[in-house]
C-alpha cells in the first residue's frame, strides 16, 4: 500500500527530509512494522528506531502507539516527544 510519511523536529534533521511517499509491502501495516521496515534502510534509520530515543507516531493527525494500523493513503508522522507550551 502507499502512504505518506512526515518527519518533524530532530527526526526531520536526522533523516534529512520532511516527507516522502512510500509503497509498502503488504505485511507492513502497523507503526511497529513500519519502524522496522524503515530501519532496513541503513544505520541512520536503525539508530533512530532502536529504542534509545523516544519516537512518537501519529496516523492522520491522531497520536497512536506502536500497535496502531494504517490504511492506503494514510498520513503517518514520526516525531520526538513534544515540547510546546
Amino acid at each position: 500500500m502507499k502512504i505518506t510519511i512526515l518527519y518533524f523536529a530532530r527526526i526531520k534533521e536526522v533523516v534529512n527530509y520532511s516527507s516522502e511517499d512510500v509503497v509498502l509491502p503488504e505485511e507492513v501495516e502497523t507503526i511497529i512494522a513500519l519502524k522496522s521496515w524503515l530501519s532496513g534502510r541503513g544505520a541512520t534509520w536503525q539508530k533512530l528506531f532502536d529504542g534509545s530515543g523516544v519516537v512518537r507516531a501519529a496516523i492522520n493527525h491522531e497520536l497512536v502507539d506502536d500497535m496502531a494500523t494504517f490504511d492506503e493513503g494514510d498520513e503517518v508522522a514520526f516525531f520526538p516527544p513534544v515540547t510546546g507550551g
Binding site: 516525531f79 513534544v82 515540547t83 510546546g84
Partner: peptide, 26 residues
C-alpha cells in the same frame, strides 16, 4: 489544558543563543 498541551500538542522548541542551538528536551 497547559499540562495536556505540553505533552500532547505537536510543537517542538529549539533554543538559539550564545551556545549555538539545541532542541528543548521533553
Amino acid at each position: 489544558m497547559m499540562d495536556y498541551l505540553k505533552t500532547e500538542a505537536p510543537f517542538w522548541k529549539k533554543e538559539v543563543g550564545d551556545f549555538g542551538q539545541h532542541w528543548v528536551e521533553a
